[in-house]
Design a protein around this nucleic acid. Sequence first.
RNA 1: CGGGGCGUAGCGCAGUCUGGUAAGCGCGCCUGCUUCGGGAGCAGGAGGUCGGAGGUUCAAAUCCUCUCGCCCCGACCA
Length: 578
Amino acid sequence: MRWTETFIPTHKEDPTEAEVISHKLMVRAGLMRKLTSGVYTYLPLGLRAIKKVEQIVREEMNRAGALELLMPILHPGELWQESGRWDLYGKELMKVTDRHQRNFALGPTHEEVITDLLRNHIRSYRRLPLTFYQIQTKFRDEIRPRFGVMRAREFVMKDAYSFHENEASLDKTYQRMYEAYARIFQRCGLSTAPVQADSGVIGGDVTHEFMVLADNGESEILSCECGYAATREGARSLIPPYSIEEKAKPLEKVNTPGAHTVEQVTEFLNVDAKRLIKTILYRCDDRVVAVLIRGDRDINEAKVRRSRECAKLEMATPEEILKVSGAPVGFTGPVGLKGVELISDKSLQGLVNVVVGANEDQAHLINTNFPRDFAIDSFESLHMAQAGDLCPACGKPLTSRRGIEVGQIFKLGTKYSTSMRATFLDQDGRELPFIMGCYGIGITRTVAAAIEQYHDEGGIIWPITIAPYQLLILPLNVDDEKTIATAEQLYETLSEAGLEILMDDRDERAGFKFKDADLIGIPLRLTVGEKSLEEGKVELKLRRDDQVLKIDQDKAVAHVVKLIHKERSAIENVSAKK
RNA sequence: CGGGGCGUAGCGCAGUCUGGUAAGCGCGCCUGCUUCGGGAGCAGGAGGUCGGAGGUUCAAAUCCUCUCGCCCCGACCA
């Protein structure tokens, strides 16, 4: 492709709206433009990088035995009502109505549609297992889109769904996908870490996220030197033990005017937050559950949801709190709390003489002890993990890093097949729900993550496997006949050799073209200029280092082909061995 | 959803408080000359319903009301 015949609107200045480097560079390098909040047009250069990632994903999905199809972006509302997610998915589900006022949703993910397909067409265990995938635009009405394509509302995603007759078959496919994912990200040149995660609204029990480590990533990863790694939400950390060597004192009520947060209460009473119990009321489907946790810790709602097996979990409203506890928000406590389940995080074990809300306006109880003053129905791990907690695998402290989630795989089980009555007949003629798995990769986010990982002050440094072009030919002075003739000839010969080439044939000054070359980050650059041509040479340079290699004109083709091969295999052979 | 900020030329911004030759700057774009190996110089030029609607006024980018869009922070931990 000739620069003058394509569309690469580069910019010298950062766009004001961009915060993170990948967003800035994707705009500056002419990869994309914003249409509206969280929605982008991918320009030719950006689209080429996206297509490269897609192709790698496609190859690896096919290799793993998945079948490509393409599902609609517009989903009938009934399908989502059937699975229960019409109400449960949340506001991110973009709902629309057609001219007949029929309800539709823009697909944020496709479990419903694929399950509907399978239930209509697969009746026998003999056809299982089956895995389908698609690469398609998704829409999620994010509460706050940001960081460009990293948290967009409209984005390209690969999603795959597998169907099985039993757990063993699901395990096998899950493992296969896990390995495919590792290969995909390696082939994209990315270093990723698989971590244990929470399954959120998708559902299911076992799930891993693939993270690209990046300082400004949105997700916090807790990891241990033993190899354990999990997201903050998914971590099963242990809280360092804290016990108090004190005799139980008599229960006492104290006035705590105006103190309705942990901070205010601890300050008012001059006690450590660890000696306070927070009592949080949740509406869990149709019942109310009180969750107790030590004052210095936060609750992991995903754990509560799983523990109570409820579909919808929300904090109780102030009205509900008043009704249940008899006191306004800020004074709830476990003593005398009636009509609710009382579950506790394990962080309460070992506590003596603690502070709790009195279920009375402007009052707390001190020197509370259990089971003397109240009973706890069960002790479970319900806390949000944090750095410094202990590794569930080996007991050493966990450390915190940040990452960008580029892929996630789930064992769904029968969540959707049961609610949507998608069944097959096993060999004994029994009707059973499909056992499912699902597997996503954020394609556009992967491109952004690659830029986060590979850039310098000058711009992007594409890994060659996902670069929009492999080689940039840069004739310095397009008015010089010899220069342009040489460049044209190299362009032609190397194109015939199968290389993807961009030639900067613009009539611009050298410095200008060099700056743009660095900005758009094509991995190899072949500079053709009068000075070197006098010696019969052209100049070959890798974007990622500073060395300029002067090579004989007639050896240039062979050299370039060899170097590209070398660059590719540096990335791809690693994955081949794994 | 709450709070804050911003909408003026393709991009980045000043001007708004204090209404009146305040429609301006830099980059980019067009023409010409010079220059030509890391975002050139000079000269000339094109380009704006000042986000939109309504209002106040002799007069509105500027004041008032409404509205739309964009960005940032926060979002119930008792």
